[in-house]
Amino acid sequence: MLLLNKSDIKKVFNMKEAIDAAKEALSIFSEGKSVVPLRTNIDVPKYEGQSLFMPAYVEGLDSVGIKIVSVFPKNIEKGVPSVPAKMILLDGKTGDVICIMDGTYLTQLRTGATSGAATDILSRKDAKNGALFGTGGQAGSQLEAMLTVRNLDRVKVFDIDKKRAEAFAERMSKELNRFSTKIIAAESSDDAVKDADIITTVTTSKKAVFNGKLVKKGTHINGVGSYTPVMEELDEYIVQNADKIYMDSKSAVLSESGDFIIPIKKGLIDESKVNGELGEVISKKIEGRTSEDDITIYETVGIAVMDVVTAYKIYEKALKAKIGINIEL
């Protein structure tokens, strides 16, 4: 059994490869070539957290996996990841565990990558300005993915804590200095949105983090943080008025994400507002953006097939590079 930590993964796998893996995973899922039960969520109210168990089987890769991931927002105050996790990868031919890897970094990588895939497929090719809402453990990979697929001049970062946004922008300007993008803290939510061609929200908010009426024509939006029925990052106006809406898993999003559950319950939209899954766009079963003026939304709650496909690709590369620690139990 191979053990891989964050450093090991970074040595063998980059964001571009993660985005390619995300596209493959989304296509596999939408074509029905995987088994992906809805995740099991266990509330931990004492610490305002949740632990999630996410299994999947991908026949084409002969691989099974389960990611155990927790979301404890207050961890950020303790200086530890707010989304700690471990990924367990099994050989689909034997059922035996072949790898355990750092699921926290895997989650950051594949979650950023799925937004990167959506941004690559749905946003305008000439996009120049980005907006990022949230500066937690997922934010860095979201920013890296955005910059990997589009040559942006500027990204404005907004957080309810202005100092945290400033510190994040300064740190990411150094970490992502290979990109010629100016990363700055936004003065306000409105300031972040008003000129944005790409907007990514990755918070734990229970109310909209931006004013949808300020979103300009042609903007692409990634909704990442709303993974429970009471969490709502996206403004209901923009959900109602977007031209195209896509999801990683329609059934999962409509079961789990308040971004859509809440406006549907209010009668503001119905399921027909959703155009389909991003995997269907990748497989060319449905159309993506058809106009430069289209406002597009991609909503992701995370599906375990992404973890299994990405983990499998990482495992393969680590074996070839002889990276990681082998142990026998």
Rank of each mutant, 00 (worst) to 15 (best):
I327T: 14
A208Q: 15
L152V: 12
A169N: 10
A117L: 06
M1K: 09
R150T: 15
I160V: 15
L214P: 03
I269C: 01
D91A: 12
S70H: 09
S123I: 12
R150L: 09
A145M: 02
S82T: 09
V274G: 00
A118N: 13
K266T: 01
K213R: 12
R150F: 08
E175F: 10
A196S: 15
N241I: 03
K23Y: 04
V44Y: 06
V35I: 04
V305G: 05
M1L: 14
K128L: 08
L234D: 00
S27L: 12
Y312D: 07
F133C: 05
E292H: 12
K74C: 07
F13L: 14
S205C: 08
L329R: 15
G49H: 07
V301G: 01
Y227P: 00
G60E: 13
A165P: 04
K313A: 09
T111C: 03
T104K: 09
K78A: 12
S63G: 10
M146G: 03
E175D: 13
K322D: 14
G79M: 13
A145W: 01
E280W: 10
E287Q: 07
K23N: 10
K6V: 14
F260L: 04
L319W: 03
I297M: 02
A321N: 11
L147Y: 01
S30W: 08
V193R: 08
G65C: 14
D195N: 08
I269P: 01
I199N: 02
T148L: 11
L90C: 03
L132C: 09
M247K: 04
A192S: 08
A242L: 00
Q50K: 03
V215D: 02
T119V: 07
I323T: 14
G258P: 09
A127R: 09
T94I: 14
K163A: 13
I88N: 03
V230S: 06
S30V: 11
E280T: 12
D293N: 11
A22K: 02
I19Q: 11
G95E: 07
I245K: 00
L319T: 05
K78T: 02
G95P: 04
E316R: 14
V64H: 11
Y47T: 14
L38V: 04
K182L: 06
Y227A: 00
V12P: 13
L52G: 07
S283T: 15
L4D: 07
F29Y: 07
S82P: 05
R171S: 11
